[in-house]
Nucleic acid binder design. Structure first.
Lengths: 231, 231
DNA sequence: CTTGAATATGAGGAATGTTCATATTTGCGA
DNA sequence: TCGCAAATATGAACATTCCTCATATTCAAG
């Protein structure tokens, strides 16, 4: 009885035995996450209540806790979704970079995309705010900044074989980490000021990352990279 | 009976009538704040319990709530203390600025001082972390960034009468706001990396604020501004 | 149909912020 | 010194919310 694979179909790998149930579960998890996002968009992440998530998802609190061991885990899953999305934007933006000029364009476009996402998605904004309220989530965001920084640094290292790789990594790390905060700042103020603040951050970032070799006029005229929401 | 001033000494202004009690109260408030700081330093701001603050302060919970209407108010008072301290550092650093060269030195020294404070004071670090957990406190910090930015911009406007004042204000605002986050970042990692990250932030800030007219070597050699803790 | 395992349920436990009826202290005039 | 009214202090009780666990239900195979 101790061997879980003593049933007839023991020929398969040691995973769980009933597949269709897992599929059903995944749908339930999706629903819980969607509902949580919805609630956060409606009332802010501070007001997220586990009981409310369960109720609106049509499941009991117990079931919710079966999939997310605690509230932090639920928030972490939401944060991870946002992170996956932003990582995708970064990868897309960096993929087309062939020279320094490309880089400046791509990076500037990336910031614009970020900004547009934050403006358009109250849920994303509040999920990120909520991510700062919890120590564990802050750790996650720190790792994410490292990953994002690494993605950018990778391109820079390719463009500048003679530069100090460690320094490039540090610069990109700081720039990406501060970028998150810059976005929060920009959306905390009225629109016109937010736009100007984003430009300021962009200038600081490009100066640090060596992207100041392209003029501001060129940046303003060029096409944006990575529209959002994706069509 | 409805008129509160129907008693004999109605000649004084409508303020409270007994002074000495107020002095005693101030001492009690001081004690509460000190205890809260202590507890935060010991266990982090997440673990701050109102009941514990009251107990260790030698007062009842009710008394604590008489002076701080809710937990946020207590945290806000602590945050405000940190802000007052950092504002003092900024003012002191900016007071001696006579030209661009002074400015770069003063600003770089200011960042170093900030960093040293964060390294030395776990309470300050955790109070600031706690300040992000609460919406109301985030508003406070935003205002504080504006004030700090204004202090720096004021000097820059004096140094550069022909520059766009609004642009200087924006730059200083962003730089100061991101500085707070840069400090949090720097102390989240091991010391050596933190040092390097602070240097990166310093470089970004000085580039944005126009302080790149002084060489890095000069900055490294120069005296630090504003030691901490104050003697 | 029976059975055992997987899954679902929601009342209840535990922690903690906040209130309020009561008790104590304080300043002051008689 | 005594007594009184206002200010202040107290902590038990309340309200909210996260989370657990004993019980009930569903599922799929024999």
């Amino acid at each position: 009885m101790q061997n879980r694979n003593s049933s007839p179909e023991l020929s398969t790998s040691p995973g769980p035995r009933r597949m269709p149930v897992q599929k059903r579960s995944r749908e339930r998890v999706e629903r819980m996450l969607a509902v949580a996002t919805e609630l956060i968009a409606e009332k802010g992440s501070d007001a997220l209540r586990m009981a409310e998530v369960a109720e609106r998802s049509g499941v009991s609190i117990g079931s919710l806790y079966q999939f997310f061991p605690d509230k932090t885990a639920l928030l972490a899953a939401l944060v991870e979704r946002c992170n996956a999305e932003s990582r995708r934007c970064i990868e897309e933006a960096m993929a087309s970079v062939r020279d320094e000029h490309d880089f400046s364009r791509a990076f500037a476009g990336l910031i614009d995309t970020y900004y547009r996402i934050f403006l358009a998605e109250p849920a994303m904004r509040d999920i990120w705010s909520g991510a700062q309220a919890d120590k564990a989530l802050r750790e996650i965001q720190l790792l994410e900044s490292r990953r994002n920084g690494a993605l950018v640094a990778e391109v820079l290292k390719r463009l500048r074989p003679h530069a100090d790789p460690a320094e490039l990594e540090r610069s990109a790390f700081v720039v990406m980490h501060l970028g998150e905060e810059a976005m929060r700042l920009a959306i905390s103020v009225e629109r016109a000021e937010g736009d100007a603040l984003v430009e300021t951050y962009k200038r600081m970032s490009l100066a640090e990352l060596g992207g100041d070799r392209v003029t501001c006029a060129e940046l303003a005229a060029g096409p944006r990279c990575g529209d959002w929401p994706p069509a």
